[in-house]
Design a protein around this nucleic acid. Structure first.
Lengths: 198, 198
DNA sequence: TAAATAAATTGATCGCCGATCAATTTCAAG
DNA sequence: CTTGAAATTGATCGGCGATCAATTTATTTA
């Protein structure tokens, strides 16, 4: 049997990714099994491997969609040219998302491609687009500085936020501590440092 | 055969952990197999499972030793009461270590315990001790502020640095970018922000 | 319409993996 | 010398990711 008219290739792709997300949302990335995905969408393993190179490939696409979702949320933030407020809002949005989609967000950085297999360009691009949001919010504070400098500060903030969500996701925050309050303090202090600096 | 006098339980434990480190250093955490460890130390799987609960347990202990090593290195840094210099040195030490032990360091955060299995206290304690180093370096700048506040800033810096090494480890830094230069800028800007703040 | 072609789907199969456990062997205490 | 406790083995289990020849279906061609 082949080319059953139940679903197009695209529909099948959607079914598989959605099923994967559901599993990860409940059991985490560790609980994701090719056999389970196939069972959930009513096809067999073979079909799954006709859609994706392997599990790593499937996971990359799933994670890619998570980045897309995050981008979509953060894009809603309207920039006011006031870096303090803009960054505050962006961070709020970012952390809101990583909270509400904790398991999926964890999957984004928990997953590692095998040794020697490069991150696909389309994936890196999604990250770059998120970074660009921070750059835009940060720009007004850094007039007169090189693009490279702006870019660097944006990346520093991005990585720092990232570290917080990682540690929060692995349950290593302390009692009474939320990544939101930590991130707020980070942004506030960092921006302060930028403003007063030559 | 049992209780062969070749090795004490402690020696065996060392052999297993060391063999694991060697494998991870070459192949990364993904390449770590119980069977390989057993083979490398000249025992069978059964013996390995007599020493450790399971692979997760073994990995936690291996990662624990990595934290110990990092702590040992960072402890060598003598504090001068000049936060800028002290932090600079600490960061230098930290990043030196994570560079030279990249794969092992990656293993520390790549590894995740299964759903619902808490991080052992002895492991969290090791992290706390590292954090305390940063607190001490940071303290002179924050005279008059509460311990909680000092603690928070220390944790923010720790998490930020962490985020950088994570992204560096997964090959997501850009060309010409090193976590050392990024971290330097982070510390400089953040400390600046702290100093000028009311 | 019929035959040929291309694509999708299956499921048996392979070689691994982590983990378990009854049987066996060794050591140390009595 | 006997006995019991601890260590060690290796066969075994269930499950995994991945592969692929065989089969089925849809589309294209004649």
């Amino acid at each position: 049997m082949a080319r059953r008219s139940d679903h197009t290739r695209e529909e099948l792709w959607r079914l598989a990714i959605d099923a994967s997300k559901k599993i990860v949302e409940i059991e985490g990335l560790r609980g994701l099994r090719a056999r389970q995905i196939a069972r959930d969408i009513g096809y067999t393993i073979g079909t799954l491997y006709n859609l994706f190179d392997d599990l790593d490939d499937l996971i990359m696409h799933m994670n890619g969609e998570t980045l897309d979702q995050l981008m979509e949320e953060c894009s809603k933030v309207e920039l006011t040219q006031d870096p303090n407020m803009d960054l505050e809002r962006l961070v709020h949005c970012y952390l809101n998302f990583t909270h509400e989609n904790a398991k999926l967000w964890n999957a984004v950085f928990e997953h590692k491609l095998p040794e020697g297999r490069p991150v696909p360009d389309w994936f890196s691009d999604k990250v770059s687009r998120l970074l660009h949001l921070i750059e835009c919010a940060l720009a007004p504070i850094l007039t007169g500085r090189s693009d490279a400098e702006i870019h660097q500060h944006a990346r520093i903030l991005w990585m720092s936020l990232f570290g917080m969500t990682v540690l929060e996701g692995s349950g290593r925050l302390q009692e009474g501590e939320t990544s939101l309050t930590l991130a707020r303090t980070l942004i506030k202090t960092y921006v302060h440092g930028l403003q007063r600096e030559p």
